[in-house]
Design a protein around this nucleic acid. Structure first.
Lengths: 340, 340
DNA sequence: TTGACTTAGTTAAACGTTTACGTAAGTAAT
DNA sequence: ATTACTTACGTAAACGTTTAACTAAGTCAA
């Protein structure tokens, strides 16, 4: 039931070379034979074997994406952006859930190597020496998504998290808040969590507000549970906060839920701004004001860069995507009219 | 920099056949040569070319997963279940976001065909004649996930949505509610939306509550926006409801948000139960009581079945996964003590 | 009429594996 | 000493393509 190029050739009374050329739109055949061959292909329902093609062309039209365990929407949006442009150029994506584990990551890299993927996208993970040199030895392009590396010359696409943190905090300040808390992810996560915190501090300083360590809390991760923990300690340590910048939407929702527990109304008693603008931001109560990362576009961009590098064999410049505040109902203005 | 089996053979002073046999753990070589070859492999950093292997073995260790555009968490959980067991058996998954489009789906099927994947998982989509016969002609196993087909003998894994709807509704009844609304997805979605509604009706009838069409609303989809729409019309048509069964968590959150708009407290004035038990259920305010589908397990099961079928060449029995109510805070009991 | 080009093909090697088959050396039994 | 088996390999075909190199026929100009 499965036909090969030979079957087509035999049935059309030509050589397999001719069939191949027709398939690949090279020249060396008449209109007539082309039509004939095409008809036979149609009749047989023949589809070329991508494996055989891959073997000889050294190109598999497949890219690998390494995804650590991210919260649902986040990963899906990035992935669907990647998948979309990958599909447009006629390739496919192999997903690998690394769960932040180094061993798993290396195992996946090996599989991707054996499968001879044309490129690799690393999502949101630190590029270790081990990973880098392995991919380097595969000599295929890679790009980092929601991450970056200063050690290695690997192009990345992300938003400027420091700037994002700054914008979020400034937004709160512009709304009249001066007593602003911070809930962020891990203090070890220099790439993201710490960056956002830096932006927070910078905004305070630029507006002559003292940075108070008591108002800042770091957690294990960016998750809801962390938000709960974080907000609890914040409520103890700094009960007179009027606003908090949560470095992820999940953190923000966690914070809001403990605010309720402490009988504080959001946003009347305490304002909360999130980060990521995931789908759940609009579904929360109150709807969450959040710093939006264009995740879908970022995924798409990363894929584009990958294919660009395949073409050009050169390193594509990195890309900082714009962020944006999506105003909803979780921030209360302490002024009659906003500044600016 | 990229070595082949020939390089290994040459360097170890054996034939490629021997290397191959060692790699595949067949016999026909001495302990000594094995050690030698293994050492050379290590030295060269050789990894077998899966493409070449695929060509001759007619097995690619790759499965395709067709995902319609599902809300983030839903898709991610299924996918990660699938990916996990796929990885365990040494295969990879190619994801295809079909966005519910027939043309795109067919295009993907062709790509998967050309890439000679070993199996296909269809998520949550109706299996049309076209899809079915195409995959049939590829003669590889397929399984349906969160879906089923009565036309074709294709194994599936899903929960019994009718039963799920029944359980949810019964839960409300057991909590003393008799005036219960329904917000579901599309009326055309016979596989899921309608099933849950049927379960709802059955539970009412079994408890001697009249089914009232006014208390039921169908929407375009299972999304937040649909929940808002649905709840609005429900509030108009049936203002004296004390509880509503929303056929998805997003619908439930939409419903809750309009409840707030109408100044109804949840759950004191109106109880809401959701379906899916996505991550956002625990993060909502109030935390959402929901019918849980073991999505991760379902994905894993589907993948297991796929590999089982590859082995056995037979059709594996379908699998109905258990559902379960996860009690949180969005349902209020109207009785002093619960029945049962 | 010849030579130079062009057109429309064919043949066969190559891609990197696996594996059926062949074989030479060693061992065991008679 | 011969036969029969076993062990430890090597040889070469095969998987389904692409493509470089070749060829035969036709066209055109001088």
């Amino acid at each position: 039931m499965k036909h090969t190029i030979k079957d087509v050739a035999k049935r059309a009374n030509v050589s397999i070379a001719t069939v191949s050329r027709i398939l690949n739109e090279k020249d060396g055949y008449s209109e007539d034979t082309k039509e004939m061959v095409l008809r036979v292909i149609e009749e047989l329902g023949y589809h070329p074997n991508a494996i055989a093609r891959g073997l000889i062309n050294n190109k598999t039209h497949t890219v690998g994406v390494l995804v650590p365990s991210l919260t649902g929407t986040f990963a899906t949006e990035l992935l669907s952006g990647i998948e979309q442009v990958t599909h447009e150029v006629g390739s496919n994506v192999i997903v690998c859930y690394t769960e932040f584990q180094g061993v798993k990551t290396m195992k996946y890299l090996q599989m991707l190597n054996e499968k001879r993927v044309d490129g690799i996208i690393f999502i949101s993970a630190e590029l270790t020496e081990e990973y880098y040199s392995y991919v380097e030895s595969m000599s295929i392009p890679m790009v980092l998504l929601c991450s970056e590396s200063d050690k290695y010359q690997v192009p990345y696409v992300r938003v400027n998290d420091r700037a994002g943190g700054y914008t979020a905090t400034k937004y709160l300040i512009d709304n009249g808040h001066r007593n602003i808390g911070l809930i962020s992810g891990s203090e070890d996560d220099v790439l993201t969590s710490v960056q956002r915190a830096e932006g927070y501090k910078a905004a305070l300083i630029d507006h002559n507000i003292a940075v108070n360590e008591n108002n800042m809390v770091f957690n294990d991760d960016f998750l809801f549970e962390d938000g709960i923990q974080g907000m609890k300690t914040l409520m103890e340590r700094a009960p007179d906060l009027t606003a908090v910048f949560a470095a992820s939407d999940e953190l923000a929702l966690g914070a809001i839920s403990v605010a309720y527990q402490y009988n504080k109304r959001v946003p009347e008693d305490i304002s909360v701004i999130g980060y990521d603008n995931l789908r759940l931001a609009e579904m929360s109560h109150p709807p969450l004001t959040s710093v939006s990362q264009p995740l879908n576009d970022m995924g798409a961009k990363a894929a584009q860069m990958l294919f660009e590098m395949q073409e050009s064999k050169m390193i594509t410049p990195s890309c900082i995507m714009p962020h944006q505040i999506i105003e909803r109902k979780s921030v209360h203005s302490l002024k009659d009219f906003k500044k600016k």
